[in-house]
Nucleic acid binder design. Structure first.
Length: 267
DNA sequence: AATGTCGGCAACCGCGGACAA
DNA sequence: CTTGTCCGCGGTTGCCGACAT
């Protein structure tokens, strides 16, 4: 019953690949292909490696037409757009970027693109579990909607064009279609906390909706008074919800991605 | 110069679905 | 139908070089 064990764990080499091992693997696959069986391949190729390790090395490094190095602005944009809509499905994202591997894209996102996109990262892990898409949010979303009717002054960092972001609940009266982040501004709330304010457009006849997202998530009620200058300028309502950054939430957790994912909206 | 810290990235780990026996 | 492995994937680790102290 079942199949033979994939490899003798005690007798396989681990760690970085040597040029000789690379050459052996490349030579073998060039000549014979993978044969659809990575488990037997290392033995046939004369390698003391686990088949999984060989597969990874081939897919991420040795196979033809692999692109290494600098990602282009276009590639950045594709990654961001896809990440916003499907989350960390790196293999699918990689399928849209010829020559790039899922591992490359994952590393690039985690080390560079995330920072480039959001400018800063929270000092401690986001506490997003309670943020949710509460009825409070929907209420304030609706009430704020009428207060914001202007083009934001700043562009969304790291992106030349709009960044697609979808909202979780297609049935809410607030946003009924995939929305678009129009801009992002750092602000200080009246309670002294540093917040990022995102503007969403694309719904409600082109009006802008403005919200505060508290990156620290330290307000259990998720509510902050608007800064007085914002109220004076008619920029926001006098009372509105604060959330852990929805965009960062997107970026940080699979749970959030599935809860808030675009797939839910567009399907 | 020595030591500590950080960032980038290759590689490993573990999980879940598919599938062979 | 059950059992156990394969395969592919995303998350995580750990090495190594660069930079800071």
């Amino acid at each position: 019953m079942g199949r033979a064990p994939c490899c003798d764990k005690a007798n396989v080499k681990k760690g970085p690949w040597s040029p000789e091992e690379d050459a052996k693997l490349k030579h073998f696959v060039d000549k014979h292909g993978t044969g659809g069986n990575w488990i037997t391949l290392p033995h046939k190729a004369g390698l003391r490696r686990c088949g999984k390790s060989c597969r990874l090395r081939w897919l991420n490094y040795l196979r033809p037409n692999i692109k290494h190095g600098q990602f282009s602005d276009d590639e950045d944009r594709i990654i961001c757009t896809l990440f916003a809509s499907i989350g960390s499905r790196w293999s699918i994202i990689a399928a849209n970027l010829p020559g790039r591997t899922d591992n490359d894209i994952k590393n690039y996102w985690n080390t560079k693109l995330k920072k480039k996109l959001f400018g800063i990262l929270p000092k401690r892990p986001l506490q997003i579990q309670h943020a949710g898409f509460s009825s409070t949010f929907v209420h304030n979303c609706s009430s704020n909607n009428n207060n914001i009717n202007q083009t934001p002054a700043t562009s969304f960092p790291g992106l030349e064009t709009s960044y697609s972001l979808c909202f979780p609940d297609a049935t809410t009266s607030c946003l009924t279609a995939p929305s678009v982040v129009q801009s992002r501004q750092n602000r200080t709330s009246s309670d002294g906390s540093s917040c990022n304010q995102f503007y969403y457009g694309g719904a409600r006849g082109g009006n802008m909706d403005g919200y505060f997202y508290n990156e620290l998530g330290d307000d259990e009620n998720q509510k902050h008074r608007a800064p007085s200058e914002d109220i004076a300028n008619g920029l926001l309502g006098s009372n509105y919800s604060t959330f852990d950054s929805l965009v960062l939430t997107y970026a940080e957790t699979e749970t959030a991605s599935s809860n808030y994912g675009a797939g839910k909206l567009s399907s």
